[in-house]
């Protein structure tokens, strides 16, 4: 069924290295998204009309534009329009962070809004200062709500980064194609084994993370 090509030479290791390329880009993007997304989310939860207007447009763009379209715009468009040459890797990090920041900020805003006003009021009534109320009462609760959701963002990011092969980055799918091509004569059925293996690899990368996120969500449910 074409699994034998994986055992030839260093093929399996090459596939794993390909996966590592995609994972690296997703982890960098997730890190950027979580930091900047949290800041933006806090800014968004302030009631300022101008900020609200701008962020709404931003969120709507992210909501309706496929990530692949954004990837094309940055990778092909920026070079053409602005004359700057952005590497495929940098384009991916820019696009996935652009997307991830929007997602994260929306989660943060939702978590902040979800804290009932009585929590603030009780904190103040107990004699805590507004800063203390935030540090000891609000932020711990917000973090509890956010952690499962941000972990979930990691799996979504990993799934989305599979798109980078479409702008020519040599990652796991591309390596898979190369292996299939190279062994065309000796194993004509390699496509089945190789693509099934990649399928399983992605599942192994994402499933434990999404289980963990679900576990935390249930455990901390209030």
């Amino acid at each position: 069924m074409g699994f034998e090509v994986l055992l030839k030479g260093s093929n399996l290791i090459r596939l794993l290295e390909g996966l590592a390329v995609a994972l690296k880009i997703s982890l960098i993007s997730v890190a950027i998204s979580i930091v900047l997304g949290t800041i933006l989310g806090v800014i968004m939860s302030m009631d300022n009309k101008v900020i609200k207007g701008i962020t709404r447009v931003y969120l709507e763009i992210v909501r309706i534009m496929p990530q692949l379209v954004l990837l094309f715009i940055v990778y092909f468009g920026a070079t053409k329009v602005m004359g700057i040459n952005i590497s495929a890797e940098a384009s991916s990090v820019i696009v996935f962070s652009f997307w991830g920041i929007a997602e994260m900020s929306d989660l943060v805003r939702g978590a902040l809004k979800g804290i009932p006003a009585i929590q603030y009021e009780s904190g103040i009534a107990l004699g805590l200062s507004p800063v203390q109320t935030n540090i000891y009462v609000i932020i711990p609760q917000v973090i509890r709500r956010l952690i499962p959701l941000s972990i979930n963002l990691i799996t979504r990011m990993i799934k989305t980064t599979s798109l980078i092969m479409m702008i020519g980055i040599v990652e796991v799918l591309k390596v898979g194609q190369q292996i299939i091509e190279a062994n065309r004569n000796s194993s004509p059925n390699a496509a089945f084994g190789v693509f099934l293996t990649i399928f399983v690899l992605y599942f192994i990368a994402c499933w434990p993370i999404s289980r963990f996120s679900k576990y935390l969500e249930r455990k901390w449910e209030t």
């Binding site: 069924m1 074409g2 799996t155 799934k159 989305t160 599979s162 798109l163 092969m165 479409m166 799918l173 898979g176 299939i180 004509p188 059925n189 390699a190 496509a191 089945f192 084994g193 190789v194 693509f195 099934l196 990649i198 399928f199 992605y202 599942f203 994402c206 499933w207 999404s210």
Partner: peptide, 23 residues
């Protein structure tokens, strides 16, 4: 549900379009 929620569409399509014909 678990399998398809935890893999990207691109990979699923590659398997269905390029892999399955070999089977």
């Amino acid at each position: 549900v678990e399998i398809f929620r935890n893999t990207p569409l691109l990979i699923q399509l590659f398997f269905i379009y390029f892999g399955l014909p070999k089977a």
